[in-house]
């Protein structure tokens, strides 16, 4: 990064910002009924849902803001939103 040359920032450096602290609701990926459609990953605005293996997805709570899109769009209702305990 170079502030002296007009604020040039390093690629992908926002990963230092752990937006998971914003969460009021938390998605639980049960990994039981998953059919592997991948919509949770595709629709995640944070890009923090990953596929571990076929029909098994997980979320990175470091960044997940708890918007609930994954749970809402899950084809097999396998993701549950619960209240975040802080």
């Amino acid at each position: 990064m170079r502030l002296d040359l007009g604020a040039i920032a390093k690629a992908g450096s926002s990963k230092a910002n752990q937006t998971g602290s914003w969460r009021n609701y938390k998605p639980i990926f049960h990994q039981v009924k998953c059919i592997g459609c991948g919509l949770c990953k595709i629709y995640c605005p944070e890009g923090c849902v990953t596929m571990i293996e076929k029909k098994k997805y997980t979320v990175d709570y470091t960044y997940c803001k708890g918007c609930g899109i994954c749970a809402e769009e899950c084809s097999s209702s396998d993701i549950e939103m619960i209240v975040e305990e802080k």
Binding site: A11, G12, S13, S14, K15, A16, N17, Q18, T19, W22, P45, E46, G47, C48, D60, T62, Y63, K65, G66, C67, G68, I69
Partner: peptide, 10 residues
């Protein structure tokens, strides 16, 4: 990359 500050569900 994640860590951006968009509102939830943006």
């Amino acid at each position: 990359a994640p860590g951006h500050t968009a509102c939830t569900g943006c």
